[in-house]
């Protein structure tokens, strides 16, 4: 099987990349495009650290063949960060000590962004359900849940995310 060119929109920019068959989106993002915010906690679809947004929905980039994103919108954490300052979700994670080692943070933040886009006023149960696929070994999740709640408040208050 030969490599082929895959075109997609990465963080709002048209991107073309030569992809070997069955190469995952995770590998293309990290090793070919240098977008290392996307992490590699297990590469088995079990930890959520590689979460990116595909057309706004969270997906596990370690399980997704890169060819499958042709023509679609991919957002990584690099694409969430505004030029000046932080996205309200990032700000809430920072303010609420929802990061410790930082390794799960990119996936956790993108999962939160997707949750708040489709449900701006999630209940605690809905937050817990949304982040259940993202493993954090450090925080015990409490600070993360508080950060999601704070982010929801901040976004409601008109601090628009993208």
């Amino acid at each position: 099987m030969a490599s082929k060119v895959v075109s997609f929109t990465l963080n709002g920019r048209e991107t073309e990349v030569m992809v070997k068959p069955l190469t995952t989106l995770q590998v293309v993002l990290r090793e070919q495009l240098g977008h290392t915010a996307t992490k590699t906690g297990c590469r088995q679809g079990g930890c959520g650290s590689c979460t990116v947004l595909l057309n706004g929905e969270p997906v596990l980039s370690c399980l997704l063949p890169a060819e499958d994103v042709a023509g679609q919108q991919v957002t990584t954490l690099e694409g969430l960060t505004p030029i000046d300052g932080l996205h309200p979700v990032q700000r809430a994670f920072f303010d609420h000590y929802a990061v410790q080692c930082g390794y799960c943070s990119p996936g956790m933040i993108l999962t939160t962004k997707a949750l708040l886009d489709r449900n701006p006023t999630p209940s605690r149960e809905e937050i817990v359900e949304a982040i259940s696929g993202n493993i954090c070994r450090c925080t015990g999740y409490t600070a993360i849940i508080e950060a999601v709640e704070a982010a929801a408040q901040a976004l409601k208050g008109g601090q628009n995310g993208r």
Partner: peptide
């Protein structure tokens, strides 16, 4: 005092460099 984490900004923006990111 509960000052903010020194490495917090790097963590929430995904710019903190971990070993796996070294290429």
């Amino acid at each position: 005092q509960s000052v903010p984490r020194r490495d917090g900004m790097g963590h929430v923006t995904g710019t903190t460099k971990f070993v796996g990111d070294v290429h």
